[in-house]
Simulated assay, not measured.
Amino acid sequence: MTVESVRAFFADNAPDIAVIESEKSSATVTLAAEAFGVTPAEIAKTLSLRVGDRVLLLVTCGTARLDNKKARAVFGGKPRMLNAEEALDATGHPVGGICPFGLKTPLPVYCDVSLQAFSEVVPAAGSINSAVRISPARMAELTNAEWVDVSEVREPSEVV
């Protein structure tokens, strides 16, 4: 899996979108923003969650934080973050490179409305130093994502 499966996904579904790679790690929101020259909010972070016996992906703006009350109402249960091994097993991507593209197995994808504040966002692309530049609407379309409101946006100074 990893970056090669993401490249294959875009070759098949959106050949106009190229995977970009950085010499620097982009494994966290702050590092990704520095590596790709955007604000932390423009990083589209993908959370791998378990709700009951379902595994799903939630893509949010980089400065957003999951609102457990909203998420419980939307997803029908309390979301729990997958650990690194579970996330790799479910997505085929390592933590820091998890994205909704080129997945090991199909998973439900949700995009948080916090992404709609931007014309372009930068999600990871299967490795800790790769990403793509894409509009939130196109990302949702390519991944068959459902739009949800399950986060609260934090100030950049609160992002670690």
Rank of each mutant, 00 (worst) to 15 (best):
V3C: 07
V3K: 12
E4K: 10
A8S: 15
A11S: 14
A11M: 07
D12P: 00
N13I: 01
D16F: 01
I17D: 02
A18R: 13
V19L: 12
I20K: 06
E21R: 04
S22L: 07
E23P: 03
K24V: 10
S25T: 14
V29E: 07
T30E: 13
T30W: 01
E34S: 11
A41P: 00
A44M: 03
K45V: 00
L49T: 02
R50G: 04
R50T: 08
V51F: 04
V55G: 04
V59D: 02
V59M: 07
V59I: 14
V59W: 00
T60E: 02
T60S: 13
C61S: 15
T63I: 06
T63K: 05
A64N: 09
A73N: 10
V74N: 04
F75I: 09
F75G: 07
P79N: 11
R80V: 15
R80G: 06
M81A: 14
N83T: 09
E86P: 03
E86A: 13
A87E: 09
A90K: 07
G92H: 09
V95P: 01
G96I: 06
G97V: 11
P100W: 13
F101S: 07
F101P: 00
L103W: 06
L103M: 11
K104N: 11
T105E: 14
P106V: 07
L107M: 14
L115T: 01
L115R: 02
F118S: 03
V121D: 04
A125T: 06
I128L: 03
S130M: 05
V132R: 03
V132E: 04
R133S: 10
S135N: 04
A137W: 01
M139N: 01
A140C: 05
E141H: 05
W147C: 06
V148R: 08
S151A: 15
E152S: 08
E152G: 06
E152I: 11
R154W: 04
R154S: 12
P156E: 09
S157L: 03
